[in-house]
Simulated assay, not measured.
Amino acid sequence: MTTTSLKPSPTEPGILAFHKRCEEFYPADAVDAPIEQQRKWYDALCAQFDAPAPVGMAKDDALVLGRIPIRRYHPARVLTETLLFYIHGGGFVVGSLSSHDAICAEIAEAAGAELVSVDYRLAPEHVWPAAFEDCSDVLGHLLNERRPVVVIGDSAGGNLAAGIVLKARDERLEGIVGQALIYPGLGGDVSAGSYVEMAEAPGLSTTDVLYYRDIYKAPATNPYALPLASADFSGLPPVFITAAHFDPLRDDARRYAARLARAGVEVWFREEPQMIHAWLRARNMSEGARVGFAALCQAVANFARRAGALGADR
């Protein structure tokens, strides 16, 4: 008798419709295509989920150290002096200032805080540690403004966010008042846990994760590259971590949250029960994504405002 195993999949209609729409622009086997094709597909996908900026929001682009592109988001109503630093996902291969533009604008608006996003160098043209160095350099630049900073990242950006915060702690840099990691890839064991259970989950497979790891060329024992490899999680700033249940990266988030909590770090952890990888883009299609995005924005706002509230009159 032969048994057929079903691919793990959510049941919420909104997230299923989101996944179907994504695959119309970015096929499930996209990693088999040339890099330039992958980027064209990803740009087309991102354009489908773009949205107008909140009323009154201003944006300006600049270069850090004369070479690293950043974009600053200035909400019409600023409630805190804290800066938000957003690092986009995309497997270290795709993504740009434009790919997460609407997401950044909405987080800045919800938190009432200025937000800075970064266009770090991508693989395979630039392997480890190029992206990490770019993000670390921008963080240093922001900390030099002598304002509190909350570091935020999704997926590969969550990896970079966790890594640069670890490095900042080791260098005793002051001013990071929170971090928000959204379905981060942190270097977990691909032969166990969610990497096996969710190996064929919609939106991201374990095969995809292996592809991105291989193309990025990060050293397996370096905790800045793979933060779960760290031997010391003490002294880190408060963290909000959100995982998608139907995601091979799910257990990376679970394990990182547990290790930080055991080290005495202030941790808030959510696991979105019906979500798949990249659900941030589904916030206007899926009720689960809407609720998860609201929780993320609230956590970021809490970190930012308790560190540097200005009051409601500014």
Rank of each mutant, 00 (worst) to 15 (best):
V151T: 02
T80H: 04
S234H: 07
C104R: 01
S5C: 06
L210C: 03
S98L: 09
E12P: 09
K20L: 13
I107K: 08
G90P: 01
D32V: 04
G153S: 06
R270W: 08
P75K: 01
A62G: 12
V196I: 15
G157D: 01
G308T: 13
Y216C: 10
V31L: 05
S96V: 12
A33P: 01
S234P: 09
D134S: 09
D208L: 08
A51Q: 12
S205Q: 13
G158L: 08
A156N: 00
G193W: 04
V209N: 01
E81N: 15
V209P: 03
K7I: 10
V31W: 05
A130P: 02
Y224A: 10
P34R: 11
L236C: 01
A309C: 10
C297D: 06
E81M: 10
D251N: 02
G178N: 09
N159K: 02
S98C: 06
A220H: 11
I241G: 06
T3E: 13
F25L: 15
A192G: 05
T80A: 12
R147Q: 04
D119W: 00
S286A: 14
L228G: 11
A299K: 02
E36N: 10
V31A: 08
Q179K: 07
H19M: 14
D101K: 00
L63A: 07
I87P: 02
D43W: 04
D247M: 10
K167L: 14
A192F: 10
T242V: 15
A156D: 01
P237Y: 00
P248W: 06
A47E: 14
D189W: 04
T2P: 12
A304W: 07
A105Q: 14
S191E: 15
S96D: 14
V267Q: 12
A201W: 14
M285P: 04
V138I: 03
S205N: 14
E200C: 08
W268N: 12
